[in-house]
Simulated scan of single mutants.
Amino acid sequence: MMKDIAQEIKNAKETIVLIYAFNATGKTRLSVAYKDITKKANGNKHAGVYYNAFSEDLFVWDNDEKNDNKDVTLMIQRSSLNKYHSLLTEDAVREKLQSYKPKYDFKFTNESAEDPELGFKNITFFLIEDTEKETPIKISRGEERIFIWCFFLALFEVEGWADVQDQHFFIDDPVSSLDDHNIFITAHLLLKFMEKHCDKRKIIITTHHMGIFSILQDWLKKGENASKFKTKNIKETRRGKDVIKEAIEEPRYLIRLLEIKDGRYKLVGKNKGLHQYHLLLLRILDEAILNNNINTYHLALLRQVLESIASFLGEGRFGYVLEELDFEDANTRTDIINALSHEKIYTNKLEILNPDDKRLLIETLNKLMTKFPFSIS
C-alpha cells in the first residue's frame, strides 16, 4: 500500500530522498500518504510543506471571454495558504523567476484592501516592454507552471508556514510542461534548495522526468558540492584487544525508483527490480537525436551510460569504453564529455549544443549502439 511506502520514506535516515516514477504510478498519492502519516505522528498537525498537483490546482485562468479576453487573469483559489500571502512580495517571486528569464512581468491583486489576510485574488501578467500600459496577457502553460513553482519557492520562505511546519519539504514534479532548457534551470534550483535545507529537514523530490532525475542524482554523487550531501561517521572495529577507528563517508541521500507490480508498490534501487535505468537513458538520447533537440545535459546522460557500461566491464573510468569503441581521439573525447557534464557548464551554458559537440555525441552513441546493440524500442 502507498502508506507503507510513505512510512518507509519517513523511517529513512537520509535527509534527501530522490524518487523516479513513471506518470500515473502514484507520485501525488504518495505525497498525500506522506502528509497523512506525518500529521498523525505530529498530533494531527501538518509537519511539513508540499508542492504537488494540488498546489497547481489552486491557480485557474479567468479568460474574461465576455470582454474578448480584455482582462484575462490567473485566479488564486481560496485555501489555508491565503493568510501567508500578505507576507509574500512580488519582488520575492521575481527573484525566483530570474533564472528562467521570463518575458513577462506581473502584479498581484488583493482579495480585500482592508483585510490583507484574505490573501491574493488574482495575478495579472503583461509583457515587460508594456510596463506602462500593463495590457493583460495569458502566458503559456509552461510559463504558468514555472510561475506557480517560483510562487511556492518564494512562499516557502515567508514566516509562519515552512518555518513552523519544519520537518520536511515534499516536492512532486515541478517540471511538468517544461522544455529541456527550463528543466536544466529547475534542476539547478532544486540542487541549491537541497544545499540550503538538507541540514535541518528531510527533502523528498519525486519526478517522472528521467532527465532531471539523472542530473540531480549525478550532482548529488559527483557535483562540485557533493561533499555537502555526505556525512562522516566513525566506525569502530575490534581486533583482539585493540579498537580500530575509521572515518567513513556515508551519503545523506537515498535514490530510489517507485515501481508497481501486481498492484503492489515498492521502492527499489537503480540496479534492482525490472527497471532498466541505462536503457531509459539511451532512449532519451535516441529521441533527442531523432527530434534534433540535443542539449548540454544529454552529454551528461551519455556519460552516465558510459559509466554504467564501464562498471559492468570492471573498469572505473568511462573513457575505457571510448577506447573500446576504437575512437582515435578517445582521450580528447573523454575530456570534452567530462567538461560539458560539469555542474558549472549546466548553469552557465544552457542552450543547444554547438555543431562539433553535437556531432561528438551522435558519433559516440552510434558506435556505442553498434558495439553494444541494446534494445531500446
Score class of each variant (00 low, 15 high):
347 T>S: 14
54 F>C: 08
260 I>C: 08
234 I>K: 07
292 N>I: 01
38 T>A: 12
90 E>N: 09
124 T>Q: 06
63 N>C: 06
241 K>P: 02
301 L>M: 09
94 R>I: 05
94 R>D: 15
190 L>G: 02
111 E>Y: 12
28 T>A: 06
354 N>M: 14
172 D>V: 02
230 K>S: 08
228 K>Q: 11
70 K>F: 15
282 L>H: 01
340 L>M: 13
96 K>N: 11
217 Q>K: 13
4 D>W: 02
118 L>T: 01
50 Y>E: 14
174 P>V: 09
90 E>C: 03
358 K>T: 14
255 I>F: 03
203 I>R: 00
334 T>A: 12
167 Q>F: 07
15 T>D: 07
177 S>W: 14
286 D>P: 00
215 I>W: 01
99 S>F: 10
368 L>M: 04
259 E>Q: 08
121 K>H: 07
220 L>M: 04
36 D>T: 04
263 G>F: 12
366 N>T: 11
58 L>V: 09
303 R>N: 09
183 I>W: 06
217 Q>R: 13
93 V>K: 00
32 V>G: 10
4 D>H: 03
228 K>R: 13
337 I>A: 06
372 F>E: 04
52 N>L: 05
16 I>G: 01
274 L>W: 09
11 N>L: 14
206 T>P: 05
252 R>C: 11
19 I>W: 05
53 A>Y: 09
80 S>F: 15
85 H>C: 10
200 K>I: 13
134 E>Q: 13
259 E>P: 00
32 V>K: 08
208 H>Q: 08
214 S>I: 04
185 I>Y: 11
137 I>R: 07
338 N>H: 14
349 K>Y: 15
123 I>G: 00
94 R>C: 10
83 K>Y: 15
117 E>S: 01
337 I>R: 01
47 A>L: 08
186 T>A: 14
309 I>V: 09
232 K>V: 11
21 A>V: 02
80 S>C: 10
42 N>C: 12
88 L>T: 03
143 E>F: 11
164 V>A: 13
134 E>K: 05
173 D>S: 10
202 K>V: 07
220 L>Q: 01
2 M>I: 15
371 K>C: 10
68 D>Y: 09
194 M>D: 05
95 E>F: 06
114 E>V: 09
53 A>T: 04
61 W>M: 12
308 S>D: 11
116 P>A: 07
53 A>Q: 08
23 N>Y: 13
282 L>R: 00
232 K>C: 12
307 E>P: 00
199 D>Y: 05
350 L>E: 15
120 F>N: 04
116 P>M: 07
33 A>F: 09
118 L>N: 05
223 G>N: 00
11 N>G: 13
130 D>W: 09
112 S>Q: 05
351 E>Q: 09
